[in-house]
Computed example of a mutant assay.
Amino acid sequence: MSHTAHIPSHRKPRRSASKMALRAGVTGGVLSTLAVAGASGAANAAEPVTQTIELPTLTTDLSTQVAQSADATQQAAANYQLQAERDEAFANAAKQAKKDQAAAEKKAEAKKKAEAEAAAKEKAEREAAQQAASRSAERTTLAATGSSTGTATTGASTASTTVAAPASGSVGAVISFLKAQVGDAYVMGGTGPNSWDCSGLVQAAFKQAGVDLPRTSQEQSTFGTPVSLSNIQVGDILYWGGAGSAYHVGVYIGGGQYLDAANPSKGVVIQDLSGYPASGAVRAL
């Protein structure tokens, strides 16, 4: 016996027969399992085995949920498409409205401009008619004044005249200026203030009325509106020679008389038209 056998804590517990038998059985079972596994492994190594995995079958509730989700997705896509189409239609409508508004404004502006032009034209025509009537009355007055104050002679003699007070209006300004130059010398190329040639005197006279005549008698014979000699009025330009090739010009002052820078021997005079008939006439006023 061991020298510690009498001490209880140092004694080894005895194993019962049943525990030993259980352990022997477990050990044998493990060895048998390993043997079977080894044999199975060897068999598997010798011949591959194909294994089929079956997916679980969807239940009725899950199928319904999937279908509803697909429908919702499709509906959302349809809603997005509809909204995009609406947005595009709205943008197109806005663009068209802007174009229509611009066209309407342009049309209104054109109409307003046309109305303004028509009003301006009507006003100009009315003023022109009033001015024409005023000039006609003025010419009548000037013609009567010229007949009563002027005594004209033809040939080399100098005409004597009493210059009337300046008449109002453009025609009156022209006639008054011309009569104020009576007695001045004739000088070829003269443009005043004390000597003139025929076209230089006529040009200076019409400048008093704000009319810029060309310089030469040829050009003056085609300036303005042609009038027949039977319809001439005070202030009309008379020319001798052809229109565009005239060699002399003067101004009709009424009463069958005209005023011109005749020649070096006469100077600026008033003459009787019947003594030296003109070839034609133009109206610049």
Rank of each mutant, 00 (worst) to 15 (best):
R283S: 13
R283I: 15
R283Q: 11
Y252M: 04
G250V: 02
K266E: 15
V249N: 02
P264L: 06
D272C: 10
Q257I: 01
Y276F: 15
A281P: 04
N263Y: 03
K266M: 13
D272K: 06
S265R: 08
A278N: 13
G275Q: 07
K266S: 15
V268F: 03
H248F: 05
V268D: 01
S265G: 03
S279Q: 08
V282E: 02
V268P: 00
S279K: 09
Y252D: 07
L259P: 02
V268T: 01
Y247I: 00
Y247E: 00
L259M: 03
V282T: 12
K266F: 03
N263Q: 08
A262I: 14
Y252P: 07
A278V: 14
I253R: 00
S279P: 10
P277Q: 14
G280K: 02
G254I: 14
H248T: 10
H248R: 03
H248S: 12
A278M: 12
L259A: 02
G267E: 06
G254V: 10
G255F: 08
A281E: 06
I270G: 00
A261K: 09
G256H: 14
V268W: 01
Q271P: 03
Q271D: 11
G250W: 01
Y258H: 04
I270A: 08
D260E: 15
Y258C: 04
Y258L: 11
V251I: 06
V282C: 11
L273Y: 06
V269H: 05
S274T: 09
G255Y: 12
D260F: 07
Y276T: 12
G255M: 10
A261G: 14
V249M: 10
I253Q: 00
S265M: 11
G250N: 02
A278W: 12
P277S: 05
K266D: 09
P277I: 15
S265F: 03
N263A: 10
V249L: 07
N263L: 04
Y252H: 08
D260I: 15
L273S: 14
G267Y: 11
A261V: 14
G267R: 08
V268S: 05
S279N: 05
V282Y: 01
V268N: 02
I270Q: 06
V249E: 04
G267I: 12
I253L: 02
V268G: 01
G256M: 13
S265W: 09
P277C: 04
D260Y: 15
